[in-house]
């Protein structure tokens, strides 16, 4: 059991794990940036009153939220080539993560906007501010405070979700564990090391999320 835990082999594979870690970082950062953009656009479409962009946005968000990410990844991985689109696995993976997290982020932003008290809107209306001004000066600054903690939560989810890209042979952290297991058959050393690295990322992001939770939320005081 743990007594046989072989640290030497971990050291031997450390360079591989570090490349995997770097790849996980790269995938996560690119995906979260793209997902944020997608989410903002999808949310703007959804809350707009314009039907031809509102309903597609709703369909996108609901379909993503009610199907597993792994199925979405396979859908693109096996589906894009049938459309004649040959792109590298890593790009397929990032595309899947972007589309998946984008839908959740759209809902997070929408919830943030809805969380702003109706009276705030009325106060803005009474002062004669127009829709854009109300959004810009009153709603969005307050919504930002409530959306940052769940957005960081979504970032944590995305980092963990990126592990599924190992199943379409993207060489990231989890894939390194699989490689080491198949080469040396030491799954305990391999996957506990992988888990250790994910835990490190998790604790850093969680600390930031908790801090932002305390710092950023403005509340209307009565």
């Amino acid at each position: 059991m743990l007594i046989d835990f072989n640290f030497r082999i971990i050291l031997e594979y450390l360079p591989l794990f570090l490349t995997g870690l770097r790849s996980t970082f790269f995938i996560s950062i690119v995906s979260i940036a793209l997902a944020l953009t997608t989410g903002i656009i999808a949310c703007a479409c959804r809350i707009s009153g314009v039907r031809i962009i509102k309903y597609p946005a709703i369909a996108y968000i609901e379909v993503i939220r009610s199907t597993p990410l792994l199925v979405q990844i396979y859908f693109l991985y096996f589906g894009l080539p049938t459309l004649g689109l040959m792109i590298p696995e890593i790009q397929t993976g990032i595309l899947a993560l972007m589309l998946n997290s984008g839908a959740y982020i759209a809902e997070i932003i929408r919830a943030g906007i809805n969380s702003v008290d109706e009276g705030q809107l009325e106060a803005g209306i009474s002062s004669g501010l127009n829709y854009i001004q109300r959004m810009r000066f009153i709603i969005l600054p307050q919504a930002l405070g409530v959306t940052i903690p769940p957005l960081l939560g979504q970032a944590i989810v995305l980092v963990k979700d990126s592990a599924l890209l190992s199943l379409i042979s993207v060489m990231e952290l989890t894939r390194c564990g699989q490689t080491m297991t198949s080469e040396r058959f030491m799954p305990a050393e391999a996957f506990f090391t992988v888990a250790f690295f994910y835990m490190c990322i998790y604790f850093v992001l969680k600390a930031v999320a908790d801090w932002s939770q305390r710092k950023l939320i403005f509340r209307e005081a009565y």
């Binding site: 008290d117 009276g119 009325e122 106060a123 009474s126 004669g128 000066f137 600054p141 405070g145 005081a221």
Partner: peptide, 18 residues
């Protein structure tokens, strides 16, 4: 312009907290 001529005070104040 109309709303500029009318000031409104709410029961719950509704000051902008940020």
């Amino acid at each position: 312009k109309l709303r500029g001529q009318i000031g409104f005070v709410f029961q719950q104040f509704h000051l902008y907290p940020h």
